[in-house]
Design a protein around this nucleic acid. Structure first.
Lengths: 184, 184
DNA sequence: TAGTTTTCTTGACTTTAATCAAGGTGCAAA
DNA sequence: TTTGCACCTTGATTAAAGTCAAGAAAACTA
């Protein structure tokens, strides 16, 4: 929890007390599309994929690698049904806290919201860059950038998830990989 | 400034005092790609486009419509050169505040950061939805969604900017428009 | 381990968008 | 008002990604 901003020891304890531990088995859903969301999660081990159901097909739109906080922020704040399902890709340990309690914690002291603020800022940076890449770069360029910036994604995840994440079809990614192998 | 969270009158005055007014003429750049950024801006009238230079061509990647806060958040926080140039599309009135001062303001009272926090959350929601649309929707679907969600964009902006924003070429958008006209 | 299922690869073909180039339109400046 | 320029539209062509289908490889299960 020290990635963004280090809270004083005392406040950190107070925050940690809001979370309860749980375990979840491979392939289970943590958030289901359409659910209401009221918790913030911290994934300690394993990784997740987020997907949307489009005409019966599951389109993977995001990945979460431990250790990381996550939730469906849109559903949570706007109190609307979740847009995305989150599926655990291996047996995982995680912590959950009611967001109401987090909000209270943040309001109790100015520095308490700094961590969340930094988290939002970096999430923003990530999605802005991803948007720009989808607009400006070719599928092959997007794949190469992903390879550079998040090599874990490529090592651990099935090709079809990566393809959807990049906005292309699995067959196309398979061909991109072959092209890259041949030309090297 | 009341879109997200209404500050008490006193705090609002304190915040407003951090901003200085300025005017900028049509077509001028407010932030230039490569600049260092240390201010938060509030656009009171007019609208902006953000663009990147790719192989000599200006690719429009974002629009800002008054009234709205904006800055290059990535450049600002990571103290890296701006990724995007911001150009005013008509003579505009705006306000600027050093971000250092904003940070101090936020740290002086827990509720002072709430507005910024809501701003970040809604910016996030916006870019997440845009990313998903770029992944899942066809160019025509993306155009129709934009038409629905931000009709101002379509009314006021040149076709080629809208096309780049949607990740397609101007010729393609021109053809999409014709198709839609014919089929209605 | 053997067998089953899922995922990946590959080829042939179709669809879609990009590119290139020409002509038209409309706005802006003189 | 006229002229010039920037922008948009359109058609012909090319390039790229999508689709469909079959077979190979890998992963899971009994």
């Amino acid at each position: 929890m020290d990635h963004f901003y280090v809270l004083p020891e005392e406040d950190k304890k107070q925050l940690a007390a809001l979370f309860t531990e749980s375990f979840i088995r491979k392939k289970n859903l943590l958030i289901r599309e359409g659910d209401l969301v009221d918790k913030l999660y911290f994934l300690e081990s394993g990784h997740l994929r987020g997907f949307q159901n489009r005409d019966g097909e599951e389109i993977t739109v995001s990945f979460i690698f431990a250790p990381a906080f996550f939730t469906d922020l849109i559903a949570l704040r706007q109190k609307t049904p979740a847009l995305v399902s989150f599926q655990v890709m291996e047996d995982s340990r995680l912590f959950a806290a009611p967001f109401d309690a987090i909000d209270k914690f943040m309001l109790s002291k100015p520095t308490n919201s700094l961590y969340y603020l930094r988290f939002l800022e970096s999430l923003n940076a990530f999605y802005i860059k991803r948007t720009f890449s989808l607009i400006c770069d070719s599928p092959e360029e997007r794949y190469l950038k992903l390879l550079q910036e998040r090599p874990k994604v490529i090592e651990k995840l099935p090709l079809r998830y990566i393809a959807h994440y990049l906005g292309i079809k699995p067959e196309t990614l398979s061909r991109i990989r072959r092209r890259l192998k041949e030309s090297s």
